[in-house]
Design a binder for these strands. Structure first.
Length: 298
DNA sequence: GCCCAGGGGTAGT
DNA sequence: ACTACCCATGGG
């Protein structure tokens, strides 16, 4: 076991809002510790005012030293001061209600960071997210991982499962997926698993522009603008991506009196809050959900 | 652009 | 028990 302490050094992070805001599905809080699997490494995180205590099952993470791997994964390299001040500048173009609500939302999300997750895992999990709740997405994703005993990692007396690779999922049967209550999403996943040749297909998309990434991802069944922009934001660190779900479309109507298709709302968000629309979107999403606002809108 | 199926868990009443 | 609601997409 590797154990170390990651000092804040002025970089704020709030693990609760970062790991429980809908951008990631498999992290669980157990007492004071957040427990999760990043690729094939089990990570435990515990936060205090000085920084984050880290326990890791491996010395390396994402092809780097685990210290640097964690900093990358948690988005600690993002300059939150710059991001928030840029967003506040963009917000000056709007009226007092927009600015007031947005500033509250941003203040409450002051330690929320965008993660850099695995692109293949994000694609599969966000296809599963279609018309689904976060606990069910977590359940499906965990059961899917447990189908592969070779993915088990024992750490600190508990068992964890790494998310399956594409080559593993190519071997999975339609019946097995149906058994995981994946329902109408099964044909989308089967088509994806058979069509894509190597997992590097997804990581290679990182060199494309946001528009090109969206165009490529939405070629696949089960990936529309919402799922595609989530993958782009949460795995490629495209901080301008602006996923539009039911909550964000309520926000757009409530704050901006803006109605329209997912694509139009997404484009409005990307254009208006460039290059950090993703951070603004997460703050609004969290604010409206935690305060249960806008539910009487459509 | 509009409408609708797809399935099951769960929180609120 | 019953209802409304889930971080939508694809096809008609």
């Amino acid at each position: 076991m590797i154990e170390f302490f990651l000092r804040n050094k002025g970089r704020q992070i709030d693990l609760d809002s970062t790991l429980d805001c809908g951008q990631t599905f498999r992290w669980l809080k157990d007492g004071e510790w957040w427990k999760g699997v990043v690729r094939d490494t089990v990570i435990f995180l515990k936060e205090d005012s000085e920084g984050i205590a880290v326990r890791s099952s491996s010395e390396s993470l994402l092809g780097r030293d685990v210290h640097q791997g964690i900093e990358y994964y948690l988005g600690l390299e993002d300059d939150l001061h710059l991001i928030h001040s840029t967003l506040e500048r963009r917000l000056r173009a709007f009226d007092l209600k927009v600015r007031t609500v947005s500033e509250k939302a941003l203040a409450e999300a002051s330690g929320l960071r965008i993660l850099r997750q695995d692109s293949f895992e994000m694609v599969v999990e966000y296809i599963l997210s279609t018309r689904n709740s976060i606990p069910m997405i977590r359940w499906m994703s965990d059961r899917l991982s447990e189908l592969f005993p070779e993915n088990r990692i024992d750490f600190c007396g508990e068992s964890f499962y790494a998310f399956p690779s594409l080559s593993q999922l190519k071997r999975i049967s339609q019946e097995a997926l149906i058994g995981l209550k994946i329902g109408f999403r099964v044909p989308w996943l089967l088509k994806l698993f058979s069509k894509i040749e190597t997992e590097s297909y997804f990581s290679e998309l990182s060199t494309l522009t946001v528009e090109e990434k969206l165009e490529e991802l939405t070629k696949h069944d089960g990936i529309g603008y919402k799922v595609g922009s989530c993958v782009i934001l949460f795995s490629y660190g495209e901080l301008g991506a602006f996923p539009v779900d039911i909550w964000i479309s309520r926000v757009m109507k409530d704050l901006f009196a803006f109605c329209g298709s997912t694509k139009k709302l997404m484009q409005f968000g990307m254009d208006s809050f460039s290059p950090y629309g993703g951070y603004y979107q997460e703050a609004l999403f969290r604010y409206y959900r935690t305060h249960k606002l806008g539910r009487d809108l459509k």
